[in-house]
């Protein structure tokens, strides 16, 4: 970036005396048009970022200091929303419930995805099998949630009918306070693990084959190879996967919205659903925005900690 502009600046100044039409403009124009072309390509993404992320985020931050019911005008109330949130038992409940969801979802999903990736790498070379692992991910979140909502239904779900047929008591997967969050975490694990596995699989393929050959020659066992070569070299990919999936997991919403809607009682009232409830159902956009800002800060902190302690921006390959 810096070199391009520096190089571009010099001929431009030199050319300023010669005027258009002379031989110099060729030298002048090229570097400049590089920048323009670059801007041209960045523009759509930039526009999307500014219009759909930056502006709404700044507006959200502003709204979090207001009382606003979306149909009226925002009224500045300073930090009152934040003070109320600190004392709001439903917020702390949401934080706890969300954390439970993230832990179950991420631990299971990452472990299963790693296993699947290794299998794809070593055993399942068929593109068909590799592709079919992605199938759940190709399904819309809402559809996946509804599908399982139906399969796991207490009365008519096939899973509960199987459980019943085995002589075991039926399980209220969505209606029971203890089951609601694990059930939803498992549904999303099912949906996302193929995709996560694909990311890890790509990381596996980037590990140079000769390292394994050397390890093989040295008589390392498969487990040793995995622990000493695969895992360390896969770390940057795992960190990327973790950062992305943890952020996504914290924002769980659709599954809750189409199944339990926060219930039973408050057992699945995750942060994102609570934000939606306060903002869109109860028309309290100021409060909802403040909750969203807090979620944003939490996610930024979590991502930062992950990057810092897992050294996600370095690789051991060099």
């Amino acid at each position: 970036m810096t070199t391009t502009t520096a190089r571009g600046a010099v001929p431009a100044r030199k050319a300023s005396g010669t005027g258009p039409g002379s031989a110099a403009p060729r030298a002048r124009r090229r570097p400049r048009s590089d920048l323009r072309v670059a801007l041209f390509f960045i523009a759509p993404a930039m526009l999307g970022f500014v219009v759909f992320y930056l502006v709404p985020s700044i507006r959200g931050l502003y709204l979090s200091f207001t009382e606003y019911n979306i149909l009226g005008t925002p009224k500045w109330i300073g930090g009152a929303n934040y003070a109320a949130i600190a004392k709001d038992p439903l917020f702390w409940n949401a934080l706890g419930v969300t954390t439970e969801y993230v832990l179950i979802n991420i631990v299971l999903q990452t472990a299963l995805a790693l296993g699947l990736a290794l299998l794809m790498h070593r055993v399942a070379k068929s593109t068909f099998i590799r592709g079919s692992l992605l199938l759940p991910y190709l399904m819309a979140n809402v559809i996946a949630a509804l599908l399982w909502f139906w399969l796991l239904d207490y009365q008519i779900g096939i899973v509960n009918n199987l459980i019943d047929a085995m002589g075991l008591p039926r399980i209220a997967f969505f209606g029971n306070e203890e089951w609601a969050i694990p059930t939803q975490a498992l549904i999303n694990t099912w949906r996302h693990m193929g995709y996560t596995a694909l990311l890890i699989f790509a990381g596996l393929q980037a590990i140079p084959q000769h390292l394994y050959e050397v390890a093989n020659l040295d008589g390392a066992s498969p487990f040793q190879t995995f622990r000493k070569i695969t895992m360390p070299l896969l770390r940057p990919v795992i960190v990327l996967v973790l950062v992305v999936t943890v952020i996504g997991s914290f924002q769980v919403f659709d599954t809750v919205a189409v199944t339990t809607q926060g219930g039973p009682i408050n057992a699945s009232r995750v942060l994102q659903y609570y934000i939606y409830q306060r903002a869109f159902t109860e028309s309290d956009f100021g409060y909802g925005s403040a909750l969203a800002v807090i979620l944003f800060v939490i996610l930024a902190l979590v991502a930062f900690i992950q990057m810092k302690f897992l050294r996600g921006n370095e690789s051991d390959l060099d």
């Binding site: 909502f149 239904d153 207490y154 008519i156 209220a172 969505f174 209606g175 306070e177 339990t260 039973p264």
Partner: peptide, 14 residues
């Protein structure tokens, strides 16, 4: 029925 068993299938259908 217990409340927890009513999440999902509608009362009318059962």
């Amino acid at each position: 029925p217990k409340l927890e068993t009513t999440v999902g299938a509608s009362m009318a259908d059962t």
